[in-house]
Amino acid sequence: MELQRIAHALDAEFICGPDDWEKINIETVFASDLMSDVLMSDRDELLLITSLSTEQSIRSAGIVGSEAIVIANNKTVTEGMIELAQDQDVALFCTSHPKYEACVRLGRIMEP
């Protein structure tokens, strides 16, 4: 599924990302505030949803090769996180929806 559709479903605000971010293909979604869990995953074409708004979230996403990360629950995104996302080539979004709500919305549009 194209990232643009996901962003729309989440009412997500685009913060930074590659030029052609709209077309990025997302196959799996991982939702967690525990970066240890994120680092254990071995899925591809990943989108990370988290309400842990720290630089470590961006790093962890980058380390496992996530294409995009959505910061849920209206958390503040810091300058450092944006710089890191640009450096790691990860598209960064935020949404006012809580994490669970965001997952439900994605679940609905991803159902076959």
């Binding site: 680092l39 071995d42 720290t54 630089e55 470590q56 790093r59 980058g62 380390i63 496992v64 090769g65 450092g80 450096d87 790691q88």
Partner: peptide, 30 residues
């Protein structure tokens, strides 16, 4: 914690630029 991760990012970039398969790059990075 601010600097924890810099080394991994640097190594990840180094391997990626040299065409190492993404799955291997990911294992090294993790």
């Amino acid at each position: 914690f601010e600097n924890g991760g810099k080394a991994s990012s640097e190594i990840k970039k180094f391997l990626k630029e040299r065409g190492v398969p993404p799955k291997l790059v990911r294992r090294v990075a993790v």
